[in-house]
């Protein structure tokens, strides 16, 4: 094609420069971006939480929740239909309604919520029943040394040792940020394991089963740590949230 050969020397190779320039910027961003991201989150977070249009949340700024769901669309039970079952190695198995849980002593916590993928939401107020309180009501048998948690999404599972489950900062959460736990956040009832990464705080909680030996949960099957302490697991060094 004669035309191409004639075209070739004409003009500067701007295309190549743009591509190489962007690649260089990208590499710089990878090396220095975590600092930039922190600064940006600090600026955008207060704007985002007050933004009535929700448009700011479309920006990839961090500082707010991202929503993960591991299975298909999750059913939204009416508050009246919700049930939480206690089963496994317990002396008194049972089922609780939302009203039952609301009538139990409530514990309030304010903690940063840290995801293992890096995002962190500062100062989230949580409120709910201590998991330890429910365990006391059920009375684990002598053989029980772990808790398996299941979700009404049908797929998500989690686990804790009995010792971890009895911590004062492990809640069966009914409220967050001043309102009921919304469906997208895993409501009406979700787990909140304050000192561990977000994936340990099972969403759409529907079952608590006492077991002998820890049965690793859904995310642990993909290589995440079973004991997901913030700052000392999963190869991360975030500030602890416990």
């Amino acid at each position: 094609m004669t035309a191409d050969r004639q075209d070739r020397p004409e003009g500067a190779p701007v295309g190549r420069r743009v591509v190489l320039g962007l690649l260089g910027l990208g590499a710089l961003g990878i090396v220095g971006g975590s600092t930039l991201q922190k600064g940006l989150s600090a600026v955008l977070e207060p704007i985002e939480t007050r933004d009535p249009t929700g448009l700011v949340s479309l920006l990839p700024a961090g500082g707010t929740f991202r929503f993960y769901s591991v299975t298909g669309a999750v059913a939204q039970p009416d508050a009246g239909d919700y049930r939480l079952t206690m089963s496994g190695l317990v002396q008194r198995s049972g089922t609780y309604t939302l009203a039952d849980l609301q009538a139990m002593p409530q514990t309030d916590l304010v903690r940063d919520f840290q995801c293992v993928t890096g995002w962190r939401v500062p100062h989230v107020p949580w409120s709910g029943v201590r998991l330890g309180h429910l365990l006391d009501l059920a009375g684990p048998t002598r053989a029980a040394d772990a808790v398996r948690l299941t979700s009404f999404d049908g797929t998500y599972t989690e686990s804790l040792t009995l010792e971890q489950a009895r911590r004062a900062d492990v809640l069966v959460a009914l409220r967050m940020s001043g309102g009921p736990v919304s469906h997208d956040h895993g409501g009406p009832v979700r787990l909140h394991v304050a000192p561990m990464y977000g994936y340990k705080s099972l969403k759409w909680l529907s079952g608590i089963e006492l077991t002998q030996g820890v049965r690793p949960g859904y995310w642990e099957g993909s290589g995440y740590s079973v004991d997901g302490w913030v700052g000392s697991s999963n190869g991360r060094d975030d500030d602890p949230t416990g």
């Binding site: 990208g26 990878i30 971006g33 991201q37 990839p60 890096g118």
Partner: peptide, 20 residues
């Protein structure tokens, strides 16, 4: 996740999000 240091992965997420 095997070899990239964590701050790089955070940086890469930052770059990936904004360029996307």
């Amino acid at each position: 996740t095997g070899w990239a240091p964590l701050p790089w992965r955070t940086g890469a997420t930052f770059v990936h999000d904004w360029s996307a």
